[in-house]
């Protein structure tokens, strides 16, 4: 077990979590020193490049979906858009989306004070969809090499987080699933990507149980879920405790394990400067 004095933003590919975390210069600062993980910055840069390329959908005819939509909006009259079945389907899909938006706008407001639509829920749902679409994470291998079966990291992370939160007092945060960080090499060939994966999960826990006990419990739940619900081959599951919060019935401040006097406020957040506890499955 390692206790670090700094808290670093998550570098995982959990889209929602990452979106909320500050990052400087495109590469998050880390509690893990560059000397320990020299390829992390390269990994992030490579992932960003890959994601930039992967954000837009390329149709089988070679056109980008964004180009087709833009041409449709601008009415360029490009004959290809009408002759190509793929572009025609994309244009039709855009038309249906527009119809839906118009339907929503034309329907009755859902509030009772006559102020119109509360767009908060709609915005949240749309952003959930966009995040999942644009930040699906890595494809992770399922089954044998010859089977060519995959699961996207964001989908697998949902299962991992749900398993962790099945334990009372545990709140799951960022989750990274992929090759061991120290072995990550950008632009790996497919065969390389099929190695057993490595799970890194951040959790906030209540102060009612010893950290090692909680970490072991989380690890066991995650291991069972990954095996029973996904069928994914996992080499290691590392649990990073990033926060300890007081149970509502417990008003006393909590000292850091092994660090007497380093208490935190009753808000349940880590002190300025941060701390974290990592319990590696190695």
């Amino acid at each position: 077990m390692a206790i670090n004095d700094e808290t670093r933003p998550a570098y995982g590919t959990d889209g929602i979590q990452d979106e909320l975390l500050p990052q400087e210069g495109g590469a998050p600062a880390g509690a893990i020193s560059p000397a320990e993980v020299p390829t992390r910055g390269e990994e992030d840069a490579a992932m960003e490049e890959t994601e930039d390329e992967g954000v837009d959908e390329r149709l089988p005819c070679g056109r980008l979906l964004s180009e087709v939509w833009e041409a449709e909006d601008q009415g360029t009259g490009d004959p290809h858009l009408y002759e190509c079945p793929h572009c025609s389907a994309a244009r039709a899909e855009l038309g249906l989306l527009g119809d839906t938006v118009r339907d929503v706008l034309a329907s009755e407001p859902d509030d009772r004070d006559g102020q119109g639509w509360d767009t908060t829920a709609l915005t949240a749902r749309v952003m959930d969809v966009v995040r999942l679409e644009l930040r699906p994470g890595r494809p992770l291998p399922l089954g044998e090499t010859s089977e060519d079966l995959w699961i996207m990291e964001a989908a697998a992370a949902k299962t991992v987080r749900a398993a962790a939160e099945s334990l009372a007092g545990v709140h799951a945060g960022a989750c990274r699933i992929g090759p061991p960080p120290e072995q990550f090499v950008p632009a790996r060939p497919t065969e390389e990507r099929r190695r057993p994966t490595h799970v890194e999960l951040e959790v906030a826990v209540s102060d009612l149980a010893p950290l090692w006990e909680v970490a072991d419990g989380v690890r066991e739940r995650v291991r069972m879920a990954v095996d029973h619900e996904l069928g994914m081959d996992v080499a290691a599951i590392d649990i990073r405790i990033t926060d300890i919060y007081a149970d509502e019935d417990d008003d006393e401040e909590i000292g850091m394990p092994g660090r007497p006097g380093h208490g935190r406020s009753g808000s349940g957040r880590a002190p300025a400067g941060g701390w974290e506890v990592t319990l590696d499955d190695r």
Binding site: E57, L65, A90, E93, L94, L96, L97, T100, V101, D103, V104, S107, A121, L122, R125, V126, D128, V129, V130, L132, E133
Partner: peptide, 15 residues
């Protein structure tokens, strides 16, 4: 579904 389909389904569900 594609992005448009997902947005459409999400918006429709809300409506």
């Amino acid at each position: 579904p594609g992005l448009a389909g997902r947005l459409r389904a999400s918006a429709s569900a809300l409506a």
